[in-house]
Design a protein around this nucleic acid. Sequence first.
DNA 1: AATATGGATGTAAGCGCTTATATAGGAGTG
DNA 2: CACTCCTATATAAGCGCTTACATCCATATT
Lengths: 344, 344
Amino acid sequence: MAITIKDVAKLASVAPSTVSRVIANNPRISEKTKVRVREAMVELGYHPNFIARSLASQSTQVIGLVLPSSSDVFFQNPFFSTVLRGLSEGAHEKQYALQMSTGKTEEQIYQDVVNMVQGGRVDGIILLYSRIDDEILKYLRDRQFPFVVIGRPCEWEEEITHVDNDNYRASREATEYLIRLGHDKISFIGGNKNLVMTMERLQGYQEALKGAGIPIVPEYVRHDEFLLERGQEAIQGLLLLETPPTALLVTDELMAIGVVNTLTKLEVAVPENMSIVSFNNVFFSELARPQLTSIDINIFDLGYQAAKSLIQMLLNPKEPVKRIIVPHQLIERVSCTNVQSLKK
Amino acid sequence: MAITIKDVAKLASVAPSTVSRVIANNPRISEKTKVRVREAMVELGYHPNFIARSLASQSTQVIGLVLPSSSDVFFQNPFFSTVLRGLSEGAHEKQYALQMSTGKTEEQIYQDVVNMVQGGRVDGIILLYSRIDDEILKYLRDRQFPFVVIGRPCEWEEEITHVDNDNYRASREATEYLIRLGHDKISFIGGNKNLVMTMERLQGYQEALKGAGIPIVPEYVRHDEFLLERGQEAIQGLLLLETPPTALLVTDELMAIGVVNTLTKLEVAVPENMSIVSFNNVFFSELARPQLTSIDINIFDLGYQAAKSLIQMLLNPKEPVKRIIVPHQLIERVSCTNVQSLKK
DNA sequence: AATATGGATGTAAGCGCTTATATAGGAGTG
DNA sequence: CACTCCTATATAAGCGCTTACATCCATATT
């Protein structure tokens, strides 16, 4: 058996409670005793038992992460490693550990969450995505369990602390950028419709067109899974239209790359014959050929802020509900052409 | 406060210990009582407290994961999301949870491990990479703490259960494949030299050349970080040689894509003027243009097997040390040319 | 000198569960 | 019918820590 607080107490000839207080750096213990106790701890190589501490103090210093189902293509998106890095950094700063859900199906993930929450395994939870009609979110809300959502919750937005981009504005700006370049046949290629993010970006796109007096063509709007192949199907459909678009707004980088590949295969030159703006700017935009102009949504920060604000909630239960908007910026690379000049 | 075992006991009019035994499905409890207790649990909405259970039973049902430092470029490699998926699935099957290290520096990660281990937070640990001269590995071995390594440990190989590919053979086969296509000026572009994997692949490459009687040209061997830009530097150096290689063996996919990009920029056509074989086959090989011929090392399985074998160790402390080799296969796509015919 | 004050530490009761040991009651045995 | 044996359940002692409360002793106060 490992060294316990009692062993330390004995060696330092104090009571176990004193040792506990030294660990917590309680000001009611004199400096002299603290020093003596600390020496004893070092001498014995003592390390506090987290489990016992958790049981006694009813807090685990662990944050539970809810990922999309691992079988979901969305899981494969490099988006996640980046969020994870942000979360990791935010959690580390305050000495919180991260525990992940491992379920494959929605039902399993729901059970994972119940286990974490009711099993007392975690102090709080972060949902790494925001879905429409999410049972997990309802569950957490009903139990009043501390949690933070990455993305905009589609219900009870005012009651739930969340970290998000201004997807609406980002998308509008991207569209306006294309409009400024002279495009008026702009297509929107979005991902999973169940993600709140997708819908917001769609709205931003539509708003920008409306603002510029450009009619919204329903055939220009496509929704497909966040993966390569789907990007290909999407693009083929568009090219077969009577008046195909001259520019594409693609809400996911991986899809954007699929789109570029398909275009190349079909011998449609980018950016000469098709302009593309992509989203996310995980480092793949630079990797694509041509390098893609894209909206950087600072994914790392999304994770980092989520971890920080959850921890704040945990430390101070009266912390007000917050909405944190992580800024985005348009990174101009070389996937768009100015067609303004050509027109004139 | 939540419902405890005592509440259930009272409602079912049995002793708490009986309830505990019902949860564990102990055969010494009669079916009649089990049914009664289970009804009480459902009625009260009881959920066992994992922390208390962990403390009493000295086991947490949690596996600790050691990732490379999040600031490391290696962390960004899609390799990790895939391993994570495998781990997740393996752990889930046996109801184990996963907890990650969050440290940024090597020293912090070491502390994370100490916390997990000595703090009693986890039952076992999985190292997601194998590095040369790894303090963490030494620590775990010295304490005889259950752990599994993904990759080949560079020391005490016979004493440590690990899951690996036969990197040596994979690399040899890839090289032989290029040789069969008629290449004899083959370059090796490897990643971080501290990773055991890199060194093994280098050996496989050299062995294949030796076997075919092709001289080993030191200038053809390059080592760079696992990231895009470095792939570019590597390739430029090679092209400036007096007799530049006609084929490249690139040990990481991301680097391979960087290489292809650079080649395109320099107007060296792939595969016409340069053949490429890449490694890993995370889905980016398909994404590249041209699609890359590559060695699929079944990353998912690496994670899955690691989780499974660690859990086996935990369930049976006498489980023998194992070495699990996950098979690889060469996936032929279109990044290599047969130069055999040209020569003749 | 007697008493109040307060700082430093000790005492002990949990936190919710597991599990070794004790016990009760019923069946089996001669 | 007394006795053993077995099965089903209860009792109680932890697991290693936190923390409310009690105690002690040295000063300060009157």
